[in-house]
Simulated scan of single mutants.
Amino acid sequence: MAHEDQGTFLTVAEVAEIMRVSKMTVYRLLHSGELPAVRVGRSFRVHEKAVNDYLSSSYFQVG
Results as ranks from 00 to 15, higher is better:
residue 21 V to W: 12
residue 28 R to W: 09
residue 34 E to M: 03
residue 55 L to W: 15
residue 53 D to P: 12
residue 37 A to F: 10
residue 41 G to R: 09
residue 55 L to E: 13
residue 55 L to I: 13
residue 18 I to P: 01
residue 35 L to F: 15
residue 41 G to S: 12
residue 16 A to I: 01
residue 51 V to F: 11
residue 18 I to F: 13
residue 33 G to N: 02
residue 35 L to T: 10
residue 18 I to V: 10
residue 57 S to L: 10
residue 26 V to L: 00
residue 50 A to D: 15
residue 25 T to C: 07
residue 39 R to Y: 02
residue 37 A to K: 07
residue 53 D to Y: 09
residue 25 T to V: 09
residue 43 S to L: 04
residue 33 G to Y: 04
residue 16 A to T: 05
residue 51 V to K: 00
residue 21 V to I: 13
residue 16 A to Y: 12
residue 20 R to S: 13
residue 28 R to Y: 12
residue 43 S to T: 09
residue 39 R to N: 04
residue 36 P to N: 01
residue 48 E to F: 02
residue 12 V to A: 00
residue 50 A to H: 14
residue 37 A to I: 06
residue 13 A to R: 05
residue 19 M to I: 06
residue 22 S to H: 15
residue 38 V to I: 14
residue 30 L to V: 04
residue 27 Y to W: 14
residue 36 P to A: 01
residue 28 R to A: 05
residue 29 L to R: 02
residue 49 K to R: 15
residue 32 S to K: 06
residue 16 A to D: 12
residue 52 N to C: 14
residue 16 A to N: 10
residue 10 L to H: 06
residue 24 M to G: 15
residue 46 V to R: 01
residue 43 S to A: 07
residue 43 S to Y: 08
residue 24 M to K: 12
residue 46 V to N: 07
residue 52 N to F: 15
residue 52 N to P: 15
residue 42 R to Q: 08
residue 21 V to R: 14
residue 32 S to V: 04
residue 26 V to F: 03
residue 57 S to K: 09
residue 57 S to C: 07
residue 29 L to F: 11
residue 51 V to C: 00
residue 31 H to S: 10
residue 27 Y to D: 01
residue 15 V to L: 03
residue 23 K to V: 10
residue 56 S to T: 10
residue 53 D to M: 03
residue 22 S to M: 08
residue 25 T to G: 08
residue 17 E to M: 06
residue 45 R to Y: 02
residue 51 V to Y: 09
residue 19 M to V: 04
residue 20 R to G: 07
residue 13 A to E: 11
residue 29 L to G: 05
residue 13 A to S: 07
residue 23 K to H: 13
residue 42 R to L: 06
residue 12 V to G: 01
residue 53 D to N: 03
residue 30 L to I: 03
residue 30 L to D: 00
residue 35 L to K: 13
residue 16 A to K: 08
residue 46 V to S: 05
residue 54 Y to I: 01
residue 17 E to P: 05
